[in-house]
C-alpha cells in the first residue's frame, strides 16, 4: 500500500479504518454523498418545492424514488459487506450501511426504532466486522504477527461498540415493537449473531496473544 495520496490532503482515504485503496474509498464517500443528497431531494419533492404538474416530471420523480429505495435497501443489507471485502475499512463500511437512515432521520426528525433501522444496524455491523477481518489479515501479513496495530485496536473498539448497540436495538425492537412490524424482518435481525461472534472471537485472540507476550516477557 502506498503512502502517497492521489489527492493532496486526502491521505485519510487510505487510513485502515476507511479503506485500503484510496480510489475505492473515494467512490464510497461519493456514494454516501449521493444517497444523502437523493434523500434531501425526496424530502423536497414531498414539500412541493418542485413543480410536479407536467406528467413527464411526475414520472421522472417516481423513477427517482424507486431507484433511491432500491439503493437504500442494498445499502442497508449487502453493500457494507461488499465494500468490506473489496476495501477493508470498518468505519466506512458502517457509514455506508447507516447513511440512508441517518440522513432520513435528520431531515425528517424521525426518531423511532423501526424495522429499517434495525436492518441497517445489522447490515452495518456485519460489514464492519468483515472489514476489520480484511484489514487485520493484511496487517498480520505485513507485520508477520497477529498482534494488532493501533488501527486494528481502534477498529475492534469501533466494531464492538456498533455490535453492542445493534444487539441492544434488536433486543428492544423484538420486545417492544408491534409484533406485526417485527414479523416483517424476522428472523433477519438475529444475524446480529454474526458480528457478535466475530467480535468475541477477535477479543479472545487479542487477549490470549497479549497474555502470551506478558508470559514471554516475564
Amino acid at each position: 500500500m502506498s503512502d502517497r495520496s492521489y489527492i493532496p490532503g486526502w491521505s485519510w482515504l487510505s487510513h485502515p479504518l476507511i479503506g485500503r485503496h484510496e480510489r475505492r474509498s473515494l467512490i464510497a464517500v461519493g456514494y454516501c454523498l449521493v444517497v444523502s443528497i437523493a434523500t434531501l431531494l425526496a424530502v423536497l419533492f414531498y414539500l412541493g418545492a418542485v413543480d410536479l404538474i407536467p406528467g413527464w416530471i411526475v414520472r421522472i420523480v417516481d423513477g427517482f424514488t424507486a431507484v433511491l429505495i432500491i439503493a437504500v435497501v442494498l445499502s442497508m443489507t449487502v453493500i457494507p459487506t461488499i465494500y468490506a471485502l473489496t476495501n477493508g475499512g470498518p468505519v466506512m463500511a458502517a457509514t455506508i450501511g447507516l447513511v440512508p437512515m441517518l440522513s432520513a432521520s435528520i431531515l425528517t426528525l424521525e426518531y423511532t426504532l423501526t424495522n429499517d433501522i434495525v436492518v441497517a444496524l445489522v447490515g452495518a455491523a456485519i460489514g464492519t466486522v468483515v472489514a476489520l477481518g480484511v484489514d487485520w489479515r493484511h496487517h498480520a501479513r505485513d507485520t508477520e504477527a497477529f498482534a494488532p496495530g493501533r488501527a486494528q485496536q481502534d477498529g475492534l473498539l469501533f466494531a464492538s461498540g456498533l455490535t453492542v448497540i445493534t444487539l441492544v436495538a434488536v433486543w428492544r425492537f423484538d420486545r417492544e415493537a408491534p409484533a406485526e412490524m417485527v414479523a416483517t424482518i424476522d428472523p433477519l435481525q438475529w444475524l446480529v449473531i454474526l458480528p457478535l461472534t466475530g467480535c468475541v472471537g477477535l477479543w479472545i485472540l487479542v487477549v490470549s496473544a497479549f497474555l502470551d507476550t506478558e508470559r514471554t516477557a516475564t
Binding site: 414531498y46 412541493g48 437504500v72 432520513a104 424521525e110 423511532t112 424495522n115 429499517d116 433501522i117
Partner: peptide
C-alpha cells in the same frame, strides 16, 4: 390534485410499513 399530506411508519419503507 397531488397528495395534500402523507405519513408512513418509516421514511424508506425498505422492509414493509
Amino acid at each position: 390534485e397531488r397528495q395534500h399530506a402523507s405519513a408512513a411508519q418509516t421514511f424508506h419503507g425498505g422492509f414493509g410499513r
